[in-house]
Design a protein around this nucleic acid. Structure first.
Lengths: 335, 335
DNA sequence: TGAGTCTTTGCAACCGGTTGCAACACTTCC
DNA sequence: GGAAGTGTTGCAACCGGTTGCAAAGACTCA
């Protein structure tokens, strides 16, 4: 059925080693042999079996890509970039959908069975312990979009969510808002915890600020919308920092439905800058997370770990910036 | 480093075959041996290497998942369902991002190197020829969301886009619209071609209808928006059937920006019923595509082909239904 | 021409499993 | 007790590749 090394060797009139070597970069083969082999391979339509060779080389070029964010449109961009970036480097993504599973044991077993060279966890909600299990099993792992720690046990690449919280707070203060609230994602998501911490830190220390907090049950449109509906039953804050863009859009929908205007009556700032945020009917002011850099850096890091497994864990953080659109009152208009 | 069969065999005091057999369903092992092996395996933390075994069994349980739709939010739902559904059956998705590549040769080589058991192409825009290349290479393949043909050369699972076009046309007629237009996706996308054909077929035969067509350059928000902006420079039609939901949302944004009201001034119907369509600030009337059934059926079909490779190609089509929301005037209000 | 060096080549063992086959063990039944 | 039948086990070959090693070949230079 499928063409093997042996058949090519026979047709080319050389040994199996010779064939193997023509398909191995850097191996020693004469031009003459190489040509014979290549011709035979062409005629038979041969292409080497990556799995068989992985048996001896110990490299499969498979990278496990684990995520539990299959409902946040941002992650379609993330998957797009991850898969392309991996492909460009000759690696193949083996996708694992965690949905609501949080025990690493299953994923670990699965990815070990397929001898992946490394693993990337792409999730803003999974705890560092999840990735730690892979680290302990001595599988190269990088947690992208994960929680930053000063002394990380596992490589983490992402943004400083605490600093983003501070940035959101300063932005709102600079625009003269004084009744300010945090509308977070799930209270146990690491990203929400950190963003809240930074946001709260700045606002609690500022006199004259009326600060409050609440949480949606998920990073989703519906959750953002219903939490905002609840908030609107009392007089709302002047401005909200929402856990992420999807949440913001849900909140926006609730606000507009009440007949209130954004930014005239309520201000809103999100986080992520997903494609939808710049849709003109949404036009969300938000904090941009540099996902392309995060992803490229994650892949570089996981490749580096494959070569030098004992590399000490590091945290790579990227700066975020504010994307000014239409959901906050302009800067000059301070009180 | 990693624990192998041999080590387990030595520890358990049995042959390698015995170990292999305890991990192979349906193989003949006595209870006593099985217990010894299981204990040894537990103690060593052994789990069998799926790739090594694939060498002899000829099955990797890897399924290639090919797509070029990494910008349409619908496909996040699609990937979610595909990966979960595959996992539930013990299969692993090897993801291939086609981005702008349309030559099957590369993907074919790649997936052949990894000896995938089967391939699912999830794309509404790829031509049937793409999948045909896999079929000719005798790799089990199913094209999901693909173009329906009466005598398909490759298994295709999806909807009858022509019938959807007719359905949209009838819906608009029933609501009394008479100046009706088609706002399609790229003119060479198979889905657009078929939807247009069905739509046109009904409307051309109906007297008193003023029918027109145009195309956006992509299935995207921006493309839908700018095409609608262009259309609005002349007096617009009373109602539009848009190529898909993202396009509809772009069009919606352009219409509202002009100060026109939906559905009072312009009616709109989309196709897909992606999650966003039911967001209250969009509230799009659309044709629902039963993606869960399409996906489950695709996976069943590809699994069936693995067992019986010579199965004749079939087209499996699923009925769509109209989801009534707020972008068309109500039924009773006929002229 | 011949010694020394560098390159190319094939052999054979190995990677981590599976499986046909024959030998063996254990029942069952006459 | 022995024959027949069933269930279990290990041997050895195999899946499709890679690679250390030693031998062969090509080349350089005196």
């Amino acid at each position: 059925m499928t063409v093997t090394l042996k058949e090519v060797a026979e047709r080319a009139g050389v040994s199996r080693s010779a064939v193997s070597r023509t398909f191995t970069a850097g191996a020693s083969v004469s031009v003459k042999t190489r040509r014979k082999v290549e011709q035979a391979a062409d005629e038979l339509g041969y292409s080497p079996n990556a799995l068989a060779s992985s048996l001896t080389t110990g490299r499969t070029k498979l990278i496990g890509l684990i995520s539990n964010n299959f409902h946040n449109p941002l992650f379609l961009e993330v998957f797009d970039l991850f898969t392309r970036s991996l492909q460009d480097r000759g690696l193949r993504p083996l996708l694992v959908n965690l949905s609501d599973e949080t025990d690493p044991a299953n994923s670990l077993r699965l990815l070990r069975q397929y001898s992946v060279d490394g693993v990337v966890v792409a999730s803003s909600t999974l705890s560092p312990e999840f990735s730690l299990a892979f680290h302990n099993a001595r599988i190269p792992i990088v947690h992208s979009f994960g929680k930053f720690a000063n002394a990380p046990k596992v490589h983490v690449v992402g943004i400083d969510n605490i600093e983003c919280g501070r940035m959101a707070a300063r932005t709102l203060l600079a625009r003269g808002y004084r009744r300010i609230a945090f509308l977070g994602g799930p209270a146990d998501a690491t990203s929400t915890i950190d963003r809240r911490a930074g946001f709260r830190e700045v606002l609690r220390d500022t006199s004259g600020v009326d600060y409050s907090e609440s949480h949606a049950t998920a990073y989703s449109f519906d959750a953002g919308r219903s939490e905002m509906q609840r908030l609107l039953r009392c007089p709302p804050a002047e401005a909200y920092f929402c856990g992420d863009d999807v949440l913001s859009i849900g909140a926006l929908s609730a606000i507009e439905e009440q007949g209130l205007l954004v930014p005239q009556h309520v201000g809103l700032i999100g986080l992520n800058d997903m494609a939808m945020a710049r849709w003109q009917n949404i036009d969300l002011t938000t904090i941009r997370q540099p996902i392309r850099q995060i992803i490229d850096s994650s892949i570089e890091l996981v490749m580096a770990m494959i070569d030098t497994p004992d590399r000490l864990p590091e945290a790579r953080l990227f700066a975020c910036d504010i994307i000014e659109r239409g959901t906050l009152r302009p800067l000059q208009q301070t009180e």
